[in-house]
Amino acid sequence: MQIEMREEKKQEFWRWKESNWKNPDIEWRSGKFITLGIDVGSVSSQAVVMVDGQIFAYSNMRTGSDSPHSARKALDFVLEATDMPEDRVDYCVGTGYGRVNVPMADRTITEIACHARGANFIYGPEVRTVLDVGGQDIKAIQCDEKGRVTNFLMNDKCAAGTGRGMEVFADLLGIAIDEVGERSFQVKEEPPPVSSTCVVYAKSEALGLLRKGWSREKVLAAYCRAMAERIYSLVERLGVKPQLAVTGGLAKNSGVIERLMFMIGLKPMNSKWDAQIAGAIGAALFGYALCQKGKGRKK
């Protein structure tokens, strides 16, 4: 039997618009410490400017092929929204996958620490667990009421459970990535999950299922379920303490997230802030804390 493959334009795991924003109620001139957080991720980069620990402005952009350039672009874009000169910044913290390549950073801090701190800021002090599933990694973090990390793990070795793994499947099935959620629920009943964890072996398993006459939706549902189980097994290592914040691209894929939340038995928290900027917020907050402690930039 021939398996029909639709040519699909390559799409990213999640779509969003590049944007920048400024808080009109904050006057940078009267600020004591102005700190900058730059998060260079594998897919997107953000810059956040904080005036004494309050969000003054932010930008959110696609990451280009080289990190230093992406950091620069995100910074220029956020400054564009303000009338503040760059040299007014007291301290700059770089974070994210490309953090070692943020040239203007006074210090780099891992995305683990920044995500937890940022989640505490945008979701409030009740957050105890932060789950971040990105294009190339999974992070599970536990934190206390101050946003200090108490337990974490990050898996960036294996594609299983990451956005990349989902992309491979969407490609295989010829289903656009932003339709994954919806299509995965177009099944009469929930099939058992694909049994191989490894994306490569899961792919051959899926081909076998298609040959057996399964619909693409059914195969997709089986994979979304497998992905949810995979992510669950990682969070479970730490234990899920309420409340739970879900960030990263996965938060936008209902096919996986609804199945995952069902397993966890919790609802993810909501916030008025875009969760994508959590890392950069955390970075800027650390910059502020370091300045307050007298550990700021040596002038």
Binding site: R148, V149, T150, N151, F152, L153, M154, N155, D156, K157, C158, A160, S196, T197, C198, Y201, S233, L234, R237, L238
Partner: peptide, 16 residues
């Protein structure tokens, strides 16, 4: 803080 370094792949859990 418990810092778990390592990974889980198709063959198992490997964390320090």
């Amino acid at each position: 803080m418990l810092a778990n370094y390592g990974y889980k792949d198709g063959s198992g859990d490997y964390f320090i």
